[in-house]
């Protein structure tokens, strides 16, 4: 069962924003309401700091407002576009903070109100379930490099150093892990 209706709707919303038509602002509000919890959760996981994560979230939606025309539906889903931008901005901010030595100490994680699955809609909680289940099927040695790259913004060399593993091994495990994730998700019609 491929969850297309919501996606098509997202494309229409982005088109409305890109056209700066009279519905553009309402379209941005809809996108914000639909994705704010996922994107903010992602940014909090990366930054561990509520103030910074909220600032990046705000920048992100201003970018969506100004740059909706950059979205190319032939290249992927709106979800992928939003998440990729959010993650990239989050990692950039993390690096900027680290270089200013202001990064939150691990463990001093800011508390933010968790959203129950009931609060987001059923479609996305189903997708979250698929991803969580797929990840649980990956061996830890493949999952860790993926997580360190995605949420901590580490490069392959940095991951090798962190895990005390040879670079070639890290490269192989990362590729194998992502391939396996893709297969598992494709098998569930997620992708």
């Amino acid at each position: 069962m491929r969850p297309e209706p919501a996606q098509n709707n997202d494309v229409e919303l982005l088109k409305s924003i890109a056209a700066a038509d009279e519905a553009a602002e309402a379209a941005l509000a809809q996108l914000y309401d639909r994705y704010r919890a996922i994107l903010f959760g992602l940014l909090m996981r990366i930054l561990n700091n509520r103030e910074e994560a909220e600032d990046v979230l705000q920048e992100l939606f201003l970018q969506v407002w100004r740059r909706a025309a950059d979205f190319d539906e032939n290249r992927g889903r709106p979800f992928t576009w939003l998440v990729t931008m959010a993650r990239s901005r989050g990692i950039d901010r993390l690096r900027a903070l680290a270089s200013r030595e202001r990064v939150a100490v691990a463990g001093a994680r800011d508390e933010a109100e968790a959203v129950s699955d009931a609060a987001s809609d059923a479609f996305r909680s189903e997708q979250r379930g698929l991803v969580t289940t797929a990840l649980a099927q990956l061996p830890d040695e493949q999952k860790r490099p993926l997580m360190l790259a995605y949420f901590d913004g580490l490069t392959q060399s940095e991951i090798a150093a962190r895990l005390g593993a040879p670079l070639g091994t890290v490269k192989t495990r990362m590729r194998t892990g992502l391939m396996k994730l893709r297969e598992l998700l494709a098998g569930k019609n997620y992708l």
Binding site: M44, R50, L57, A119, R128, T132, L146, L178, L181
Partner: peptide, 25 residues
């Protein structure tokens, strides 16, 4: 990139404060 983006869903969704929405709009 679509596969990589799915990793975002492994982070717990969290509610940003209402001020973020106000600032954006």
């Amino acid at each position: 990139e679509a596969t990589a983006a799915s990793l975002a869903l492994s982070a717990d969704p969290l509610e940003p404060s209402e001020q973020v929405r106000e600032r954006i709009f």
